[in-house]
Design a protein around this nucleic acid. Structure first.
Length: 500
DNA sequence: CGCTGCGGGCAAT
DNA sequence: ATTGCCCGCAGCG
């Protein structure tokens, strides 16, 4: 897996953020010196510059479920996030994680999808809309200019990651094959793994955190979770990564897949830029042979059929969430939003974004990287205040400058990282309320372990924009990272942005 | 059948 | 004017 790791490491570095540009600029940077590796899970206010030869950029792919949004600008493709489909009852999958399906992009298909029952507990499915951009869905912008594809994201996803597109597709194709083989009379039930699907799954199994009592575990997060500041991290520890790869634990849905590790430290090695399927050579690692609990009642729904795989594929960071009381936050969020079924979106849309943000925020590791020590009461205060600030900041683009570096430093009880793993972040992006919650979450009681316990945020003397926007460098210690850290630090900066 | 991009149209700000 | 979003259409796999 060295190649994949290298890829991730590359992906973690954003050239696009080093340059000063906005997707709406009349002139894009001409002839970029080099291009960014494609990042499948961009989060936060990030910008990438891809080569126009980059296939995935050409197709405007994203791990997030992004749908086309008409912005009446033929030159800039805008997409907005659909969120994630979860079980309305928040039921636990066999491994303890939560269902997180990829919302169908097509409206009709999505409605249909939401009418289906939870493949795990048969209760309703529920679409968690994305409100990561000041109450609106996170938006991604694509613009082709010359030999470069410019990508800009606005907002921080305030929901878990859905399945990636490749995972969904793999699952669908797997279902087809599954059904095809099942309906062949006397066909053996223990199906042989098929390269096309197993390659994907094997990769994801490799990334499965092993756990029994997630709440008791130390977690070293990486990009397996929506990470505004580090959407594409490399594995912090490849040994640990391998340590979670005992595939024999996935050979049945009765045996808890993680029981072997009663008290492990969890590494969440899910590749953030996992758009490539793994080596088909791992075909024998497919979970399918032991898939069905009851071969006599094979569901026809793709989500059903592939559930066992899905739970590993899509929830590699669910254990992380649980480690941070994710579910309770989710419930709190639901409480605010009211009960919802399909079509809830409209109801939720009526809510002030502050409510959603302050109640429901799956907390990316990087947010915890700011090991802010405040206790819960302080958290509440900050949430209220900063969300307001953030929201206000979003309207009139009156710039206040982010000049308090010390506050940033105080966010992380850490040393300072090496210079060559830095990324730049524009202070202009500091506008989102969502990270406020997380940035101030007390981590002292949380079982989180941060890689090298350190992030660096410092003012950056990079190409000053004429509009007075300043640039910041943010870097996780010892790790290449990307962007969006601004979102985490925004509340403390009380920065307004220029509202891209 | 679903994904994707396009573009008309509407409503709110 | 901008932004968000709904809708339908067409091309594609």
């Amino acid at each position: 897996m060295p190649a994949a790791e290298a890829q991730l490491a590359d992906c973690a570095w954003s050239y696009g953020m080093k340059l000063s540009w906005d997707i709406n600029d009349p002139q894009m940077p001409q002839k970029p010196a080099h291009f960014d590796r494609f990042c499948e899970w961009p989060d936060g206010h990030v910008r990438f510059i891809y080569s126009s030869d980059e296939k995935k950029a050409q197709r405007h792919l994203s791990g997030w479920a992004m749908r086309n949004t008409n912005n009446h600008n033929g030159h800039i493709l805008k997409k907005s996030c659909l969120g994630v489909v979860v079980c309305a009852q928040d039921c636990a999958l066999p491994d303890g994680s939560r269902l997180q399906l990829r919302p169908a992009i097509c409206d009709k298909a999505r409605l249909k999808q939401q009418k289906k029952p939870c493949p795990n507990c048969h209760s309703a499915l529920e679409l968690i809309p994305c409100r990561g951009h000041s109450g609106y869905p996170v938006t991604n912008f694509w613009r082709l200019d010359g030999n470069a594809i410019f990508f800009q994201a606005k907002g921080v996803h305030d929901h878990p990651r859905p399945e990636s597109k490749s995972e969904t597709e793999a699952r669908r194709s797997a279902v087809k094959r599954q059904m095809a083989s099942f309906y062949q009379p006397q066909k053996k039930r223990i199906r042989e793994p098929e390269a096309g699907e197993s390659q994907d799954h094997s990769r994801h199994f490799n990334s499965i955190p092993s756990l029994e009592n997630p709440e008791d575990l130390d977690v070293i997060p990486d990009a397996g979770f929506p990470v505004p500041g580090q959407p594409c991290l490399s594995f912090p520890n490849s040994d640990a990564y391998k340590a979670t790869c005992d595939l024999t634990t996935f050979q049945g849905d009765i045996v808890p897949p993680f029981q072997k590790y009663s008290n492990p430290r969890i590494y969440l090695p899910r590749p953030a830029c996992s758009y490539e399927l793994a080596d088909p050579g791992d075909a024998n690692l497919s979970p399918y042979p032991t898939f069905y609990k009851d071969a006599g009642s094979i569901p026809k729904d793709a989500d059903w059929v592939h559930l066992n795989t899905l739970q590993y594929n899509v929830n590699t960071y669910s254990s992380f969430e649980r480690s941070f009381d994710f579910t309770s936050k989710q419930h709190g969020w639901k409480a605010v939003l009211g009960k919802a079924g399909p079509g809830e979106r409209l109801d939720q849309a009526q809510l002030p974004p502050e409510a959603a943000h302050s109640q429901y925020t799956p907390q990316p590791p990087c947010r915890y990287l700011t090991t802010a020590p405040p206790a819960a009461p302080a958290l509440q205060t900050v949430i209220t205040t900063t969300t307001k600030v953030s929201y206000q900041a979003y309207q009139p683009p009156a710039l206040k400058y982010c000049d308090n570096v010390r506050e940033v430093k105080s966010l992380s009880s850490c040393d300072y990282a090496s210079e060559n793993t830095q990324m730049s972040v524009y202070a202009e992006a500091l506008d989102l309320p969502a990270p406020v919650v997380t940035a101030t979450s007390p981590t002292a009681s949380l079982p989180l372990k941060i890689p090298r316990d350190c992030w660096t945020v410092r003012q950056h003397a990079l190409p000053p924009r004429t509009d007075g926007v300043e640039t910041w460098d943010v870097c996780p210690s010892g790790l290449g990272s990307t962007v969006g850290y601004a979102d985490r630090i925004s509340p403390f900066f009380s920065c307004d942005n220029e509202d891209f």
